[in-house]
Design a protein around this nucleic acid. Structure first.
Lengths: 141, 141
DNA sequence: TGTAATTAGTTGCTTATTGCAAGTGGGCTG
DNA sequence: CAGCCCACTTGCAATAAGCAACTAATTACA
């Protein structure tokens, strides 16, 4: 882990890793939508492939995700979140609520409502799903 | 509220407002550290004044903060979070926890621990403090 | 009252990042 | 084996970040 921080503040340090317009969109697809393929990630927003590549590399370097070869199709690669990535689910969940309340994007209003009603339960469920997805796609050792 | 969104996803829409390396650092100072003056905000990380100015303008435009004249010192201005800004406290709080656990920044380890122990209580307390700070600094109508 | 110090904000310039579009190359598929 | 897929790569123009010096208004103090 590098030690050239802007300050000793964990918020600033976190933003050095995930603080941009795309990283959390990528993680949303990996963590909440169980997308694993390059071509699926960020496709909803039309992310440029070079930006996507850059973010996947940075996230891999930060041990937030990992990259594997597809078991049968040699063209494909599989991107999976690590435990460190899974622990970012709370941040994503909060952004769903804030974004639903304070921006024009209302795409998952029901989910926002569910989060408000039982945040811990929703996070637990999402984390379990992410762990399961990871296990299902991880190449057998 | 503008309607040219990247997608209907509230996460993506939120990131269009607060998704960069500096915005949440600015909000951290306004929301959690009760800083109100231009020269205090982001000073810990040495933010450039033009970047700070830009972020304060964007946040004001997004109605996340408001800008007032200082009651006695004509040189100063006061920046205060709105309710919309206060509702971002949960995001900051989650970043404190994640950043403390997964980056080299350990500046507020005790607070991270307190959040893990009683997240809702900590958020409630911080929000109350922010509301109080706002009321104390708001020019009397 | 005049001079220096504060505070907020601006400008000019350089470097880094983003976004778009087109291209490459290994690997499947019919 | 021809063509398509999928994951990348490259080149280039536009945008944003970062640095440092500068302005303008106000205040504090000798």
């Amino acid at each position: 882990m590098n030690n050239d921080l802007r300050s000793d503040c964990p918020i600033a340090a976190s933003l050095d890793v995930i603080g941009d317009r795309w990283t959390l969109v990528v993680l949303r697809d990996l963590l909440l939508a169980q997308k694993v393929a390059f071509s699926e990630i960020g496709s909803q927003e039309g992310i440029a492939t070079n930006i996507l590549m850059d973010r996947l590399e940075r996230l891999t370097e930060a041990a937030i995700i990992e990259c594997y070869a597809h078991p049968t199709d040699g063209r494909r690669r599989i991107y999976l979140p690590t435990q460190r990535g899974i622990e970012l689910i709370p941040v994503l969940v909060d952004l769903v609520v804030w974004g639903t309340d304070h921006t024009a994007a209302k795409g998952v209003r029901k989910i926002a409502k569910a989060i408000k009603h039982d945040r811990d339960g929703v996070i637990k469920k999402l984390a379990a799903k992410a762990v399961e997805c990871r296990a299902a796609n991880l190449p057998k050792a």
